[in-house]
Amino acid sequence: MPPFDPLFWRAAGHLEQFLKTRAGDSHSVTLDRRSFQQLHVLTARLASVEQRDWQLSAKLVAQQLHAQLKTCECQITNALECLTPRNFSPAAPAAAEIYEELSALRQEFEVCEVNLREGTLSVVTESIVLEDIDLGPFRIVLNWKAGPDPALASPYLVQAISPCRPDGHSDITHPHVMRDRLCEGDATFALQQALRAGRLTDFFQIINQVLHTYNSGSPYARLGEWDGTACHACGAHISDDSSYCSGCEAQVCDDCSSCCPHCDTSACESCLQCCGHCDSMFCRECAEVCGECERVFCPNCLNPNDLCPECDHADESEELESNTDSPPEESGPCIAVQSAGVGQIAVSA
């Protein structure tokens, strides 16, 4: 058992008062109206970009819609949980219990500090690395002198100790942290419950786990933006020497680009065309249009008369039919054998 810490004991007294103001009715159901409205907006946007055949946009909007559906699903699940009768109603914890939480917190995090003057309890996370991007450690600061309306005001900050920011976003230090505020996402309700019950260890650990998780469907900034290069199609982080699309000149990752088999240039999926006959993919420069049906084909599938195999075949069939149905013409490419008398001129006597 760790030795008694008088600073933590005094902090526990302050936190007891603070947590009393936050311990309320845990059965209140809250649904964020904006989240559900956003479902309609994204659904309409997806239909719109699909109608225009904007495949990249459709992919991105579908990801956003998926994330939004999950958010709403989470809210509904939590609302159902709120309405479930429970046999345990957390009361505001006493100072002794808070002191135990503080002691446990010190075991969970290497740095756990109390500042009585500022009214803060803070921990420092290990360095957060998401998809090989090192965002550095973060300080999570719970302020028990938070505003007069604690139900509305977020009582904590998430501060980057060695800020690593994406290009063009000076206020973002993590895909889910803007201006030192964490967008809690799926953790919203669990954080509220932990604070209401005075479970400070859970509270800080939940925030820590959110910082260790990347939700690509709904970030303030995509991880690919951290060193200035993100795949234009999927948003993944790519190196500076990744290929550029020959069609739209956007930089794309290997998964989102292909090489045209006819000219060897690289192009993104949106700029590649699919042959109407052999299904091969090729760049716009190599696209050939059938002179009859005006569909797009690869250079290998058009005949010298610029006809696709179908139209070429149709032409041949028509020709064959017309040759069998109608009498042979007197003039044409074939050599005609003249019948007796043809070509003679009658001369009057």
């Binding site: 939004q68 999950k70 964490l182 799926d186 669990a190 959110v210 260790h212 939700n215 709904s218 970030p219």
Partner: peptide
């Protein structure tokens, strides 16, 4: 859980 998804823009 060790993985809890945060959010960002709505």
């Amino acid at each position: 859980p060790t993985k809890i998804e945060g959010a960002g823009r709505i």
